[in-house]
Design a protein around this nucleic acid. Structure first.
Lengths: 129, 129
DNA sequence: TTTTGTAGTCTACATATGTAACCCTAAGCA
DNA sequence: TGCTTAGGGTTACATATGTAGACTACAAAA
């Protein structure tokens, strides 16, 4: 399994997050959004859209006035794929290593610590039952 | 803080991991290593080395017979920087979200779960004391 | 009908990245 | 003493990515 490696560039993430949040959207809507979010010129958004289309991560249907873009991949897939490639590359695949590193660096706030603790505690209990 | 964004491409990681493991190393040693690890041709390794030198992540001293390459940045720094940019990009900066996602996907083995539990439990207790 | 906003196409250009061939010199070995 | 190898330099070339201008067509507003 795990045949296709889904991977998005920074620019592509901007667009995708936007479409995942709500779709379909027309080019103009996206252009507006990107302009405020990132300051891109109209043509920049257009270009990125075209490339993403080619890469197969989005598609469109011909709407009444304009094309309606929608995502072809879902967030979870991409997140998963990026996460596992990240963990492998940097932490030898080990989530423990990651968490350990952040813990050591005291990069985790009290709140986050509690949250983490609860997540793990529950998951663990669920497993053991 | 956090002025400089350290970021390594895939190819660069190969070299760096090698140098972090033990350095200095000569070009020839690295070429050999890369050849077995990745199948790169000699000139490929040379090119990547040159680029990394320019980017300032490695440097060399003139050895008796050949240059001795060594890293200019340490693993921790890079790992930190990559981790935070990853978490921000994908999980909105939240480690909890990451862990939660993996937990939900049952992507965490029993061993890893125990490990995580212990890491968090201890860190948490340390904090509260 | 003239201006303007919307939709869409094509082209451009710099930097990054992956990958590698070609070329020269000095030193070691057969 | 000619071939092989190590060490080093230069150039190349495709794809990816960030970023954007130029130009065309059409419909709605003025």
């Amino acid at each position: 399994m795990e045949a296709k490696e889904i991977s998005l560039s920074n620019s592509e993430w901007y667009i995708m997050e936007n479409l995942w949040e709500s779709s379909p959207k027309t080019a103009t809507q996206l252009i507006k959004a990107m302009e405020t979010e990132t300051g891109w010129a109209k043509s920049t958004t257009k270009t990125v859209l075209r490339r993403m289309e080619q890469k197969g991560c989005i598609a469109y249907t011909e709407g009444a006035k304009a094309r309606e873009y929608y995502p072809l991949i879902n967030r979870e897939e991409v997140v998963e794929s990026e996460t596992s490639s990240f963990l492998n590359r940097i932490y030898n695949g080990s989530l423990g290593l990651l968490v350990n590193t952040l813990v050591k660096k005291q990069d985790i706030s009290d709140n986050e610590m509690e949250e983490l603790y609860n997540i793990i505690k529950e998951a663990r209990e669920r497993k053991q039952s």
